[in-house]
């Protein structure tokens, strides 16, 4: 390994992981999907740098990391927003940023959304385990970046002549407004009573303190006597209803099977929005 093609983690931030498109083909062995939560911002970063679509990036949560690049390269910052600097100069999101050997990238507190993606030209080149570089312990040794880690970087495809190319960025901000998230009915939706169904679409929901890459639990509860079901397949985006009335939205690191009724499934677009929401944020649900 060329020692120069590395970046060093000076400070890992609050919770920074390596993510790509996730693990495909291992769910029947109980292996979670994983992968970038805000898959749009992840793909945007790779598009900006002309990376292969499978290349891995850093997913930063709440407070970003500080990194020193031991090689010259280009990076792109996408997703939410955090004031970020390269050698103390503020840099712009959603554009290629040139980094010279030895420069330090600092990503601050995330003030818009809760996740920022750092894409490097050539991508983060950690070992592929079960078809993906996405962190998920114990499939990967670590579950988040640690201070002092050396992260290898792949070979760049970025070309100067692409600099003028324009990429249109979809506006997904206003993350913390009480927006509407679309859902589809789940297999056990039909077991809900009329008033329980009404609750789902009239209530304003709040993200509780239990939110991570595995699941988001909501503050509001829905009284029910559905009990549990046979352990059944589940997917990221499914809303489970526990016997005690808790509503749990499964995210990318969720298990492959579960025993709680699957009352609904968040739409693809809704999942992108949810992946930028944090504790205390509110939203409504509407059935497609």
């Amino acid at each position: 390994m060329n020692i120069e093609s590395l970046c060093t983690i000076i400070n890992p931030g609050f919770f920074t992981t390596i993510q790509d498109n996730g693990r495909v083909g291992y769910a029947h062995l109980g292996v979670p999907e994983s992968g970038a939560l805000d898959i749009y911002s992840y793909q945007l970063g790779n598009a900006i740098l002309n990376n292969d679509v499978t290349v891995a990036s850093l997913e930063c949560t709440l407070i970003g990391p500080s990194l020193r690049f031991n090689t010259s390269c280009h990076i792109a910052l996408t997703g939410g927003y955090a004031e970020s600097t390269v050698n103390d100069k503020i840099v712009t999101f959603n554009k290629p940023i040139q980094i010279n050997k030895g420069e330090i990238l600092k990503i601050g507190r995330i003030v818009k959304g809760c996740r920022v993606y750092v894409t490097v030209s050539g991508g983060v080149n950690t070992p592929v385990i079960l078809g993906s570089r996405s962190y998920y312990s114990p499939i990967t040794t670590y579950n988040s970046l640690k201070q002092g880690m050396q992260i290898p970087i792949g070979e760049s495809n970025f070309k100067r002549e692409l600099k003028g190319a324009k990429i249109k960025v979809k506006k997904l901000d206003n993350y913390d407004q009480e927006g509407i998230i679309k859902i589809q009915k789940g297999p056990e939706y039909k077991l809900l009573s009329h008033s329980q169904k009404e609750f789902l679409t009239t209530q304003i929901f709040t993200i509780s303190r239990l939110w991570n890459r595995m699941a988001i639990q909501l503050e509001e509860e829905l009284e029910n006597n559905l009990g549990s079901i046979y352990t059944s397949p589940v997917l990221p985006g499914i809303i489970q209803l526990t016997p005690s009335g808790k509503l749990i939205i499964l995210m990318k690191d969720c298990q492959t099977t579960g025993g709680y009724p699957r009352i609904a499934k968040i739409s693809k677009e809704g999942l992108l929005r949810l992946s930028q929401l944090q504790q205390g944020n509110r939203f409504r649900l509407s059935v497609i």
């Binding site: 495909v24 083909g25 769910a27 029947h28 046979y230 059944s232 397949p233 997917l235 099977t257």
Partner: peptide, 14 residues
């Protein structure tokens, strides 16, 4: 395509 099964269900994914 990716398929998983449990006790009496089969899910076709992605």
């Amino acid at each position: 395509i990716e398929v998983i099964h449990t006790y009496n269900e089969i899910l076709l994914k992605n």
